[in-house]
Design a protein around this nucleic acid. Sequence first.
DNA 1: TTGAAAGCGCTAACAC
DNA 2: GTGTTAGCGCTTTCAA
Lengths: 319, 319
Amino acid sequence: MADLAKLAGLSKITVSRALSDSPLVNPETRERIRELAREHGYKLNISARNLRLRRSHTVAVIVEMKPSSDRTMFDPYPLGLLGGISQELTAAGYSVLLTTRQGATAAAVQAADGLILLGQGVHQDAVHRFDKLGVPMVVWGAGLKGDSHVVVGSDNRLGGAVVADHFFRLGRRHPVFIGNPSHPEIYERLNGFVDALGVHGIKPLLMRRDEFTADSGTDAVHSLQARKVDFDAIFACSDLLAIGAIRGIQQMGRTVPGDVSVVGYDDMPLGASFLPALSSVHQDWQEGGMLLARKVLALIRDEPAQSETLPVSLVVRST
Amino acid sequence: MADLAKLAGLSKITVSRALSDSPLVNPETRERIRELAREHGYKLNISARNLRLRRSHTVAVIVEMKPSSDRTMFDPYPLGLLGGISQELTAAGYSVLLTTRQGATAAAVQAADGLILLGQGVHQDAVHRFDKLGVPMVVWGAGLKGDSHVVVGSDNRLGGAVVADHFFRLGRRHPVFIGNPSHPEIYERLNGFVDALGVHGIKPLLMRRDEFTADSGTDAVHSLQARKVDFDAIFACSDLLAIGAIRGIQQMGRTVPGDVSVVGYDDMPLGASFLPALSSVHQDWQEGGMLLARKVLALIRDEPAQSETLPVSLVVRST
DNA sequence: TTGAAAGCGCTAACAC
DNA sequence: GTGTTAGCGCTTTCAA
């Protein structure tokens, strides 16, 4: 900047103002300086600016990247979120600092102006650990009632409810839920499902399955068969589970959707091109990421921010 | 730091040395200072350090996040890479700055000490754009011969070759390749496949398919049938394609693996729990990410770094 | 083994 | 509309 100032015959501060679009500077002067900067390949020194402004202009995104079979954290899911987050933060002049839980002790993370937690609900210990940093924080997932964190997540209750409605309208009266309700998000799906069916006096059966694999889905259906359970609809809380369930149903000699309706969750590409094409609950990850970003930004600016749930939609295909 | 110095009755610089593990400082003094720092929740100001050291201690990772059907960029893939990158860079005291191509004009990205490009091969225009930044850069994908970029990628030629060997040992003599060889990585797979088969005097058929979906795989098989092609093995360059191909084969009234052997690529979770369980070429994304990170770090330190390909392995399951 | 001085590149506050 | 001064918090000389 000092060099540009010398070249332009002006002072450093005028250069600074010109480059940061300050209204204090004469438009012509500004253009001249900008041109000079371009010409000489000038680049703003972020560290110096951040030091001066006492801000890092950075938001740390802490991701659970260990692909555990326990959690649907592999899939298109995290990338969609990250895309939305990145887009929104970049537009606001903030950087996205990507870390795992282990890496979160790094000085750069501690210095972040804000924190976004992905892949762990509010219930996890991790959240409390990061609470202590005293930095604006937003969490993806399902909120706990009475919890004071800002949580953004898709409306899992609604997800359960729309599937319930769908089944009821199809005349299904013996629905089954497959999944692991000890995950808060899954628990909400189950809840929405149960409540919406309850209105019609229907009580679904819960088949608890911890793994989110196709095998696990097939196995669940085999169990139903072994227990001679009468069922005509399955709501699986992941697409892989759903696909496995369909396989199990076909092995029983029954048809989908003739004898049994099946709906999955997440609307993964594989489901759409599966045969029969899987009906599934769709969530807009990108939008979720953008919302997460906007919330941290609000908190950073000392503006209020509330938890928010995103709508989901049922994509009805052939199952 | 000045505060800590006052508290300890020492000078700023001694505090700085103590906290950065300088051998110049008395071990007892160091411990005393560290204890003090902990006690008072002292946090290093990264911007100030970076300003002084004239480094950002940041590596920008530029990801193509638009999930195009053209490329398998959704999937576990990028997260595995990102995990490896993050792990390695964090351990070296560097931060991972995540951006998209659009966001790459941000000042923070321009200030990065290094660049990692994901999701676009060396052939893309994007690479040349980033070249101009004059920052150490490493690219994921397939290299071009004669190209001077540092490229890390899995050994796609080997991937093709192991599948060829596998087919030959099974007695298959009429193999087909399904995929889009205009992608450099896919092109290499095809090449390895063709060359390894050529040794045995076998010439595979290329079924060009641009989409990496299951439908596209099914369609490819239907085309083979319509053209009355005699085939007994299919190498699909994605798992989704392979699954679609298997469906097509079954619709023809033929069996997998009885009549036709099928191998996919990427070894996605869905393939393993597909029925029949899909054989696939496995790549170690995590390791790839770590390697990418180590290469940029080397370049940043002005050490030499060469392109490198990672081995892949064929996971033989039921197809 | 410790310290004093200097300065990295930027911008807010206050003149003019 | 432009300039001067000062200082953000750190580490590399150089000196003791």
